[in-house]
């Protein structure tokens, strides 16, 4: 099918360019690793009950949060790169070839997903070194979640980049949305520590549900309502953002 073939052409091109300048992949990974090393040890001193995990298992709480943080920041800022590609005329050049216009987005998203999975693998290995004990199933489930998160966020990020066509507009916009969402997701500390009003507001962050489900998985609970909620939110968000992104890339005028 020509869409898949086109997607692979774009994917290989983007992968090649990313490997040529891997600085961003490394920088993206540095932050979660720093949190793991410099913030994680603080959590191990907190009473396990406050984290909602069995004693001595602070990393089962913390690593899922860092995985989402990695996905959140790694994917939302990819729109920057498409602004550069638009400015160099590459997007326009592609749009005049018979290549599927959707593949111009899909190939990039695929690259971002692959990058994220590699980063996540490094992060989990580092987590294991720090004392994370988790089943393989839990790790695979959490990877599934961050892939869904990355697919949705990267699509919408590219679409936003292509619509704004300006880093100056894009960066503040993304920051304004991502930082509160991240804080309300309970990445660092459980939202249950917060006062009622904060817990109430936190319900609007979709990542809240995803992190909760990932933490359940890390504790070996694969089948419960929290998991169903998490999967529904992650899949729904991915589908909606993918659809939004496609609409922008398939527009006849751009």
């Amino acid at each position: 099918m020509s869409f898949l073939r086109d997607t692979m052409v774009i994917f290989r091109r983007q992968e090649k360019l990313a490997l040529r300048n891997p600085a961003w992949v490394i920088i993206g990974l540095t932050q979660p690793i720093l949190y793991l090393a410099l913030f994680g040890p603080l959590l191990t001193r907190l009473p396990a009950s406050s984290l909602g995990v069995p004693a001595g298992n602070a990393y089962k709480f913390f690593v899922p949060g860092l995985l989402i943080q990695l996905g959140l920041f790694g994917s939302t800022f990819v729109g920057f790169t498409i602004i550069a590609d638009w400015r160099s005329g590459v997007i326009e050049r592609f749009r005049v070839t018979p290549v599927s216009r959707l593949a111009i987005m899909a190939g990039r998203v695929l690259r971002d997903v692959v990058t994220l999975v590699v980063q996540a693998l490094v992060l989990v290995l580092a987590g294991l070194a720090f004392g994370l004990r988790a089943q393989l199933g839990a790790i695979l489930i959490s990877f599934g979640f961050i892939v869904l998160v990355a697919v949705g966020l990267a699509s919408v990020s590219y679409a936003t980049g292509l619509l704004t066509k300006s880093e100056d507009a894009f960066a503040p916009m993304v920051n304004t949305i991502v930082v509160p969402l991240m804080l309300l997701s309970g990445i660092m500390l459980p939202m249950t520590l917060g006062p009622g009003w904060l817990q109430g507001i936190a319900r609007i962050s979709p990542f809240r549900y995803i992190i909760d489900a990932m933490r359940e998985a890390f504790q070996g609970h694969y089948f419960n309502t929290i998991m169903v909620e998490g999967i529904a939110v992650a899949a729904g968000m991915a589908a909606m953002f993918l659809w939004l992104g496609s609409r922008v890339f398939l527009r006849e005028n751009a």
Binding site: G89, E92, K165
Partner: peptide, 10 residues
């Protein structure tokens, strides 16, 4: 606003 269509790092 846009350039001639080549990527500088290709």
């Amino acid at each position: 606003a846009t350039m001639g269509g080549t990527d500088p790092s290709c």
